[in-house]
Design a protein around this nucleic acid. Structure first.
Ligand SMILES: [Mn+2]
Ligand SMILES: [Mn+2]
Ligand SMILES: [Mn+2]
Ligand SMILES: [Mn+2]
Lengths: 220, 220
DNA sequence: ATATATTTTTAGCCTATCCTAAAATCGAAA
DNA sequence: TTTCGATTTTAGGATAGGCTAAAAATATAT
């Protein structure tokens, strides 16, 4: 059964909020994520339940079904492939791609996505470091940890960001914290959790705990 | 004022049916073009009239306004640029691009189109030979004539097709009548208007008047 | 174990877009 | 100039998606 654009957006939100189908998700959380009202969410949940992409028990939140997970991963795959296209081919900055990809992900054409994937040389990660599901919905997970949870002296490489907002990404650009950068934790302030890190063995950088919590590192 | 996807599709249809704003267009013709019912068209015309992209006088058809023409050309520009992208970069056949471009043309991002245009090296024509309006809505018109209206012995080059349906384009592929082909009219049958043409100085080809009427030639 | 607070759903309404059937209008022919 | 057939509009209804306000259910705190 075909999903509408709105249904795809809801399903994707549910997938993300449920941490890939592991947790159940509340009406209010979905409303916050989609920026809509809980009443509208209740309506939509009934519809998604009827289409059997979620399991919906009134008042007790929703769980995504296997079918739903497959659909959500299909949309996520398209979103991330388009983001790669925009950055690699059209010279978009990584903070400019999200809104456009949010529209492009709903274009219906399996051939288009297959060809786009090939054209981009089968990328495994999007510009924010998030993994691109393959055509079967399989995701290559990279073990990664939030920067604020690393210990003193530990080293690693920035592999992704949790927050893809333009404001956050532009801040990272400004301070030179890009994906692929090698980092080392030089200092952690007990009081507020802020930290000092060494970037690429040459530049030191201070950041708040909030910022660090949105930077994901592969340890080494 | 923003136009919805449906409104953009109607406006584009009106632009095409009006021959670029020259003629006024009837409700029934729009319904046929959009594959919808005349009643739905009447509804939409009222709305497009309110938004002043058309001039609508009940029972007397519509004329597109200057503003409407500008909007329609913007959508046409996007449609044709995407078609070029699909053929040039993603190896789509020219009969596979129309449906996808019909969706892609509604993506809202001036930056995207500007970058796409540059990436494609500012193409002037789409895969069907139709001119791509520039960012100001200016169209480079090529003088062209339908093949069925050419006289015996006249020569020229195929520059466009009138019908972009997959069936027609695949037929042209099969017989080797592609855009850019040099042709000469070898014979015209009085009885049914069918003709025999020479393609690229080496292959002769018979075609019905209906086929020839959908092939556009730049004479030389 | 209640009472209160929070969450979620329902009811009722709105806009956009489509449909069918009926009414209105137009224009061509008699 | 009247009439008739084609065209177009209107009326009424459907579905999708959103909203507010009120009701209902659940969760939490005395
Ligand atoms: Mn989206
Ligand atoms: Mn991303
Ligand atoms: Mn379209
Ligand atoms: Mn075209």
């Amino acid at each position: 059964m075909e999903l509408t654009t709105a249904e795809e957006n809801y399903l994707k939100a549910i997938y993300h909020l449920s941490d890939g189908g592991k947790k159940s998700v509340s009406t209010n959380d979905i409303a916050a994520e989609i920026k809509t009202k809980p009443a509208s969410v209740s309506d939509m949940l009934r519809k998604l339940g009827d289409k059997e992409v979620i399991e919906y028990r009134k008042y007790y939140g929703v769980n995504i079904t296997e079918e739903g997970k497959k659909r959500a991963l299909g949309t996520i795959r398209k979103h991330r492939l388009w983001e790669v296209f925009l950055v690699e081919k059209l010279q978009f900055a990584w903070d400019e791609v999200h809104e456009v990809a949010e529209e492009l992900e709903h274009i219906q054409s399996p051939l288009l996505i297959q060809r786009l994937d090939a054209y981009l040389n089968y990328p495994k990660f999007d510009p924010h470091g998030d993994p691109i599901p393959d055509e079967f919905g399989d995701v290559k997970a990279r073990p990664r940890v939030a920067l604020n949870e690393m210990e003193l002296e530990q080293t690693g490489q920035i592999v992704a960001v949790k927050d893809s907002s333009a404001a956050f990404l532009r801040y990272l650009d400004k301070v030179g914290a890009y994906i692929g950068a090698r980092i080392k934790v030089l200092d952690k302030v007990e009081f507020d959790g802020s930290l000092e890190i060494l970037v690429d063995q040459k530049k030191t950088l201070f950041m708040s705990k909030d910022v660090a919590a949105n930077i994901l590192v592969q340890q080494s």
